[in-house]
Design a protein around this nucleic acid. Structure first.
Lengths: 357, 357
DNA sequence: GCATGCTATCGAAACGTTTCGAGTCGAATC
DNA sequence: GATTCGACTCGAAACGTTTCGATAGCATGC
């Protein structure tokens, strides 16, 4: 009988004290096989006496081959990713479902631009699945690594690698729908503010070379293509340098609006509500009234309580999207192989669009 | 020689193919003991040939007794917690340090009010440490559980359980400092908007019974006590029902400001920048100008790019706080027992305070 | 020529569970 | 009284690593 100094008690210690075998003690805690009530009580009593709080999760995981954690890959600094309320809504819905499994979400940040470094970061982590929801477009070296490890991958809105199960929307159709709305109000001089086409894109006018029609599944590309389907390839389009951000929207808005009046667009279609908020503030800073002097549309359908407008937007129900994502993950862990799904989106007219003056 | 169907290759498979022992193969991947260059190459070649991506993290963790994950306990729905930019700043700083370890952050939500359910949720998770940074005040049943498991605990701004290592500030002194600033401008009719005193508190005037002088370490209590040290116990104070939130601030602001002018405060001291933003918007909705008709102060020092004011605030440098927290965690995992630290805070005067009209 | 030390490798024993097949024992059945 | 059955319990074999101590080979120093 070895005295085990400071160490935490193990199932073996408990079993010994209760006078049963280790396997029986295990049965008591897992609640599987049949155990006599008296035995169960004895084991539980021994556990309390020793301060045993339950089977060691690490050992249990090794045995099961499940870690109980799914990875959430976040592009760039957390601070940036979490500034996007849509991403948070997705995460929220996801957690809602995962809490019932139970599975935790392991946040994995990719410090800006350090493409390759994510693999060594990922390698020592035990993950049952990985979600790319907070990641932008483009090839991610993590995909190859995870595929090799056989870890199921999920995403919303990342382009269509066959190995990734997706919850997506028809980006281009959504882009067309909201552009049509603006056009139907009578606007003809309309500009577009996009999220970056590529991870490497910089803020400013969108270069034609970056808009590849084959990539219509990438949110930024698909939405721009939809916009151009309605307003033509010559309509001016700028992109932010930092995804869906308020500051990016404000800067883009200023560049589009701080021009002679006859050049100024009467409406701006943006790719996210947060960007739209930036554009609206930029407009108001220049003395323009929304929607009287300028109509602005967003995308996502998030809640921005501080903004004194309800943005006209395409609602893509982030929380619900996250919940669906969660369900897919759960199904996959249960052994089935769920297929990607396409979610509907809906135009929601707010107080930021009106016919041109 | 067993054929191992679909399963992932293990270190044993690699060793076998390379014609070395398992222990040698292990040495190659961990980079510890001395290995002949030729042997190393042979092992690596075998690994690539078999598609072996590195030692199984689960097994490795069991052996080491380290899971590579630290838990981040989040109170309530993720969506709510992540609305608080200060919390995110702390998380961001934390991740910055942890990425170098490498360790991931496992998000653990506590679905609203379900006090007890957190323990069964925690029990099956392998965690090297737990951080309470996103949790409000009050006794958390998780603390007992984690203490029993011997998992080190850390927090910012949760009251002083001796088992929890803290990065704190002197809440009361900070409360005094900012109240002094307002008083020195000449304000005499000043109200306070607090975060909830207790997890169970509801929105509205702060009941005296909830303000326990012994709990001055709880942010909401300490800051209110500091305020009262300057403006007296009779100065009106209301609390939000949902922590540090814009909506909570707006509602509280409206209740304090939508009264006859002679009753209206000339300044409002709040417990967070987000709350302050809500108060400012409420004031502007009532036609009051900030700071001409009303001075408003915040707390935290976060960046709210959408607000056309720079809030006068106590800067507590969330990101830096998170980094320090990360360093403490790392030290603890390295075997030392770091002590709690108290960080300085600094008054930062912005554009939301001025002498009364 | 023998002790000494160093390098490269190996076998075996953990780490703490879960699970499977087998075994015991008492009660019920014929 | 032998047989069958069920409820309960157990031992042993995984799960895939890492690490400790031992061993073998080989050069060095006296």
């Amino acid at each position: 009988m070895v005295t085990r100094g400071q160490a935490r008690p193990t199932l073996r210690d408990v079993a010994e004290r209760a006078g049963v075998s280790v396997s029986t003690a295990s049965l008591v805690f897992s609640g599987k096989g049949p155990v006599a009530e008296a035995t169960g009580d004895r084991v539980r009593a021994a556990a309390t006496a020793l301060g045993f709080t339950g089977p060691n999760p690490l050992a249990s995981s090794l045995r099961h081959g499940r870690s109980g954690a799914i990875g959430v890959l976040v592009e760039g600094r957390l601070r940036m990713a979490f500034r996007d309320p849509f991403a948070i809504a997705v995460l929220d819905g996801l957690s809602e479902v995962l809490e019932t499994v139970p599975t935790g979400m392991l946040l994995i940040g990719q410090p800006a631009g350090s493409g390759e470094s994510v693999v060594p970061q990922l390698a020592p982590l035990a993950l049952d699945a990985v979600v790319f929801s907070l990641c932008g477009p483009g090839e991610n070296p993590a995909v190859e690594h995870l595929a090799a490890r056989g870890i199921p991958m999920f995403s919303t809105g990342v382009p269509g690698d066959r190995r990734i199960t997706q919850v997506r929307i028809d980006e281009r159709a959504a882009g067309i729908a909201i552009a049509e709305h603006v056009r139907s109000l009578g606007h003809r001089r309309v500009a577009h503010v996009a999220m970056p086409m590529l991870p490497s894109s910089t803020a400013g006018p969108v270069p034609d070379a970056e808009v590849r029609p084959g990539e219509a599944n990438v949110p930024s590309v698909g939405r721009l293509l939809g916009f151009r389907d309605v307003f033509g390839a010559n309509a001016s389009a700028v992109q932010t340098g930092d995804g869906s951000s308020f500051e990016g929207g404000r800067i883009a808005g200023r560049s589009l609006l701080d021009v002679p009046e006859h050049e100024r667009p009467t409406a701006i279609v943006t790719q996210s509500d947060v960007i739209a908020a930036g554009v609206i503030v930029a407009a108001e800073e220049l003395g323009l009234r929304v929607p009287d002097d300028l109509s602005v549309t967003g995308f996502d359908g998030v809640d921005l309580p501080w903004l004194p407008h309800r943005i006209t937007t395409m609602d893509q129900q982030g929380r619900e999207k996250g919940r669906i994502l969660g369900t897919l993950v759960r199904k996959r862990l249960d052994g089935t192989r769920p297929r990607s799904v396409t979610q509907p989106v809906q135009l929601r007219v707010g107080t930021t669009t009106a016919p041109p003056a």
